[in-house]
């Protein structure tokens, strides 16, 4: 659905996006993570044909940026970093303007559909300027969806929202995902990306890595299993560490934290070893590294020479 080849954008001497290559499949929710100033918004602007690349090429839904710009803008939806609403106009009027600009067939019906879907129907006559941040963001999302775009670009959709409003927006993105829409999601919210995205790209001017959240964890840490043992002895830690399939074994209070690649196969072996040594194993669980840990590791690595 989105195909990017060595896409580059320079502003004078500054390189904002450096040779980005990436593919996003149909119906995929792709998370684009990166620190402030990494070039995420510039990438989205290029992919939505708002600005042109300095080098490289990209196609969105089979349409080439720089050549089919108007057609691209017709088939993609963009939620910008700030809602950018017409504050003096009502919610309904805001959407009506954009529905007409997108050439939507039945404007009143489509406007009503999205106002109802996002819970704004009762406030449709109110000026957008009187809305809370969450409502403004929902109205901006409705605006991005009015023309039923095949690809949706969401730039920081929950940024600056309180937890309740952020959850509402996140749940709605989840609904869009369930509908099978292709979504390119720029976010700082790593938990959000973890929950919503099938793949994640970590980006800081260049694409540092791209994979599923599970594979990113695997790449960095392998998999980690925690054995809670009553009175853990140092010998047991050494014995587990000596097993050929164990990547690491560390003691943390009464917990034995073991890194290994295939816990489904090897957990029983470790368990047998511990029990044979006289350990009282209370329970076993898998430690899930947060996406934040992964993100910070990759960004740190990218910053190193």
């Amino acid at each position: 659905m989105i195909h990017i080849e060595k896409l580059t954008k320079q502003f004078g001497a500054l390189t904002a996006v450096d040779s980005l290559s990436l593919d996003v499949g149909e119906g995929e929710v792709f998370g684009f993570l990166g620190p402030n100033g990494a070039g995420k918004t510039t990438t989205v602007r290029m992919l939505t044909s708002l600005i042109g690349p300095t080098a490289g090429r990209a196609t969105v839904n089979g349409l080439e940026i720089g050549r089919d710009d108007q057609a691209i803008r017709q088939t993609v939806g963009l939620l910008t970093e700030t809602p950018g609403l017409y504050d003096r106009l009502s919610a309904e009027h805001n959407l009506t303007i954009f529905a007409r600009l997108y050439g939507v067939g039945d404007v009143p019906d489509q406007v009503q559909k999205y106002l109802r879907m996002l819970g704004l129907w009762e406030r449709r006559q109110d000026e957008a300027g009187s809305f809370s941040k969450g409502m403004r963001q929902k109205l901006a999302i409705a605006r991005a969806l009015l023309h039923e775009p095949e690809v949706l670009f969401l730039d920081e959709p929950t940024s600056g929202l309180d937890p309740e409003a952020a959850k509402l927006v996140r749940d709605f993105i989840g609904e869009l995902k369930a509908e099978g829409r292709t979504i390119f999601l720029c976010t700082h919210n790593l938990d959000e990306a973890d929950r919503l995205c099938s793949r994640i790209g970590i980006f800081k001017t260049r694409l540092i890595t791209v994979d599923t959240p599970a594979n990113l964890r695997q790449k960095l840490y392998g998999r980690t299993v925690v054995f809670h043992v009553k009175q853990l002895l140092p010998d047991w830690v050494g014995a587990v560490r000596a097993l050929p399939f164990v990547r690491s074994a560390e003691a943390a209070d009464s917990r034995l934290v073991v890194g290994l690649d295939d816990p489904e196969t090897h957990n029983p072996d470790i368990l047998r070893q511990l029990v044979a040594a006289g350990a009282d194993v209370q329970f076993v669980g898998e430690l899930r590294h947060s996406l934040e840990d992964i993100y910070l590791q990759f960004i740190e690595k990218a910053g190193q020479p």
């Binding site: 057609a71 803008r73 017709q74 910008t80 950018g84 600009l101 050439g103 901006a140």
Partner: peptide, 9 residues
């Protein structure tokens, strides 16, 4: 509000 407007066709 110019960016959303410019993102239309």
């Amino acid at each position: 509000s110019l960016e959303p407007l410019l993102a239309t066709p």
